[in-house]
Simulated assay, not measured.
Amino acid sequence: MASYREIVVNSLWKNNPGLVQLLGLCPLLGVSNSVVNALGMGLATALVLACSNAAVSLIRNAVTDAVRLPAFVMIIAALTTCTELLMQAFTYELYQILGIFIPLITTNCIILGRAEAFAAKNKVSHAAFDGLMMGIGFGLVMVVIGAVRELLGTGALFANMQLLFGPIAANWQLTLLSDYKGFLLAILPPGAFLVLGLLVAGKNRIDEHLEAKAKAQEPEAPVQSRRVRVTGVIE
């Protein structure tokens, strides 16, 4: 059973669903044109992931292989519906912006994949923590992409945060580039592909650097000297 530390490292870096597994690309690229959209989608996904992992772990010994996957899908669909209703009640305008991507959480490969690969084999506490960390890892990638695209596209950050946090966040917008005319490609879907590609390349480069540094710090194996005895025959 993986430790909590291993779960955190795998979820946020080594096995990040957005940068390594490249799962959930539909919402990752579709709603990451601003920080508020990305954050709202990330929180919804993390909630469903944590709750579905916990529920799957609870029933893992009570369902047979024949109905395992249908049962998992029903759990995920029910939790997605609950999340959708919560967003309709408390963040209705953001729910309308995210649109079809909220119901599509049911078919997100990350959620069903973690339910099958981890939650169905581990106890409830570890399964719920794994789902939460995977959701946070996915959400962080989405928020970073949203921040880059929003900044390049509009010259500002944290616009319309009141859609998620209410009137208290109405003045959270930071205008970093005044009189900025905008970069349309950044807020269009091709811009999401470009930013994601740069993030994946950056992570791979960091991993290569860390691996090379670790190899350089490894002590060299001692070389054992051997005496070679040479004999010859002189005629």
Results as ranks from 00 to 15, higher is better:
E116H: 05
L132I: 04
I97M: 12
V223F: 12
F165P: 03
I168K: 06
V56N: 01
G166Y: 15
I136G: 07
T45Q: 02
G146H: 02
N171A: 05
V9N: 00
T81H: 10
L94F: 09
M142A: 11
L176P: 07
V56M: 05
L22G: 00
L23E: 08
T106F: 00
A44M: 08
N15W: 12
A77Q: 02
C26V: 10
E93T: 12
A156M: 08
I234L: 06
A55Q: 03
Y92Q: 09
L19H: 02
Q173L: 01
A147I: 03
S3H: 13
A212I: 14
P167R: 15
L177S: 07
H209W: 07
M134L: 13
G166L: 15
K203H: 13
A78N: 03
A127F: 08
V148T: 12
K215I: 05
H126R: 09
V141F: 00
A77M: 02
P219K: 13
R149F: 02
V20Y: 06
T154W: 04
A38T: 10
G146P: 07
E116F: 05
G40D: 06
A212C: 13
C51H: 02
F158E: 02
A169K: 07
A216R: 15
G166C: 15
L185V: 15
V223T: 12
A221S: 14
N204S: 12
A117E: 04
V20M: 08
L58R: 11
A62W: 02
G18R: 00
A115S: 12
V195F: 13
I187K: 12
F118Q: 06
E84T: 13
I59R: 09
P219A: 15
L104M: 07
E116A: 13
C109W: 04
G202K: 09
G166H: 15
R5T: 10
F138H: 04
P167S: 02
I136C: 08
N61Q: 14
A44E: 10
K14L: 08
L177Q: 14
Q217N: 11
E218N: 10
F129V: 08
N122T: 09
G42S: 07
L140K: 00
C82Q: 02
G135P: 01
N53Q: 12
A54P: 13
L12P: 04
L174D: 05
E220R: 14
V141W: 00
G191C: 11
R68V: 05
Y4S: 14
G146I: 03
N171D: 14
M133I: 01
Q162I: 01
E218Q: 15
L19V: 06
V200T: 13
T91V: 15
D130G: 05
T231W: 11
H209R: 14
A159R: 14
L23F: 03
T91L: 06
